[in-house]
Computed example of a mutant assay.
Amino acid sequence: MSADARSYLSKVLDIMEKNALLRHQVDWAEVRRQAFSRARAAQKPSDTYDAIRFALRTVGHGHSSFYDPEQVPNIEKAPPDSSFQGPEGRSLRDRVGYVSLPAVQGSDATYVRYVRQGREAVAKADHPGACGWVVDLRHNHGGNMWPMLAVAGPILGDGKVGMFVDPDGRTYPWTIQNGSPRQDGKAHDWGASTPVADSHAPVAVLTDGATASAGEAVAVAFRARPQTRFFGEDTFGAPTGNDDHRLPDGAVLVLTEVKDADRTGRSYDAPISPDVEIPTIGLRTGAADHVLQAARSWLLKQAACR
C-alpha cells in the first residue's frame, strides 16, 4: 500500500470516527483493520474507495454515502426543467388547504425555485383562508430539509419545531421565525414568508414508506405540534441528519452524524408510525385516495372547520 493511499484512507476513517452517529458503538480498531486489509494493494486514493464503502456499511447507520469525484457533479447540478417537481397546493372543499412537499436535492438555484413555487402553492391553498391543512409528505424520499421547511414554515407556526441531537446529547435546534426556518439560530437566504390565515389551524400530515430522510425531518417538525395528526403508513426509517465532507481528491463523504428530534426532545432513528394507519399498497392508479379522505374527514370535525 502506498503512502498516499494509506494517508487518504486514514483521513477518511478519522472523519468517520470523530463524527459518525454510531461512533460510540463501533469497534474502531476492527473497522480500521478490515478497511486496511481490503485496501492493502492500493497505490492511489481511488484504490481505497471500496474499503471506504465497506467501512460506511458498518458505521454509516444505513443513511451515509460516498461519491467519487466523477459522481459529485451529478448530485450538485440542478435538475432539468422537464424533471423538476416542486410543491403543489390547492384548496379542497370546505376551506381545507392542501400542499404537497416532494423531495428536493441539487443546486442553490434549485432550492430557490422550490421555495418560490412552494410559497405560491401555500398561498393558493390558503385562499380564502384555510381552516385546516393537509401536508402531503408521501413519496418524499428526502434531499435538503430546509427548502421544505421554508415552504411549511407558515403552517408549522413560529417557534422551535425540532432539533438535531448528536451522540453526546448536544442539541442543534430548528426554529421558524416569520415563516422561515433557522438552523441553530442561523437564517437561510430565502427571506420571510407570507403568513397563512391561521398558523394555529389543525394539520393532517400524510406519510408512507417512501417518506424518508429530509422528508422524515419535516414529519418530525410536525410531531407534537398541537392539533396535528398523522395518516397513512410508517415512514422509511432514516430520520437522521447527514453532513458532507469534501475530500482532497474531490470525492465527497456524506456521513450520518445526528438524530432528528421533535420539539419535545424525543429523538427518532427508526420508522415513524402514523396516528391513523391506512395501507396504500395495491391501490391502482386513479383509485380513491383513502388517506387524503380520512385526513380531510378528521379536519372537518375539528372546531376550526366545523
Rank of each mutant, 00 (worst) to 15 (best):
D243G: 03
F236W: 11
F231A: 10
G250Q: 09
A217Y: 02
F222D: 05
R229N: 10
T240H: 02
A221C: 15
A212K: 05
D244Q: 13
T207K: 06
E233V: 03
R229P: 08
R223P: 02
A214P: 00
D234V: 02
E233M: 11
G237W: 09
V218S: 05
P239W: 06
D234Y: 13
F222R: 01
A214M: 00
Q227Y: 12
E233N: 07
D243N: 12
D244S: 14
G237T: 01
A212P: 00
A224I: 00
G209L: 12
D243Y: 05
P239V: 04
R223L: 13
G209I: 01
G241K: 06
T240E: 15
F231S: 10
Q227A: 15
D244N: 15
A238R: 11
F222A: 03
G215A: 02
S213T: 04
V252W: 02
D243F: 09
R225C: 14
A217Q: 08
E216Y: 06
R225M: 11
R246W: 04
S213N: 09
R246A: 08
N242H: 14
A204Q: 02
A217N: 04
A217G: 13
P248R: 10
G215C: 01
T228R: 08
A251C: 09
A238I: 09
R225T: 11
R246H: 05
T235K: 11
G215E: 00
G215T: 01
D234A: 14
A214C: 04
P239Y: 09
P226V: 08
G237D: 06
V218T: 04
R229A: 12
S213A: 14
T240I: 11
A219Q: 02
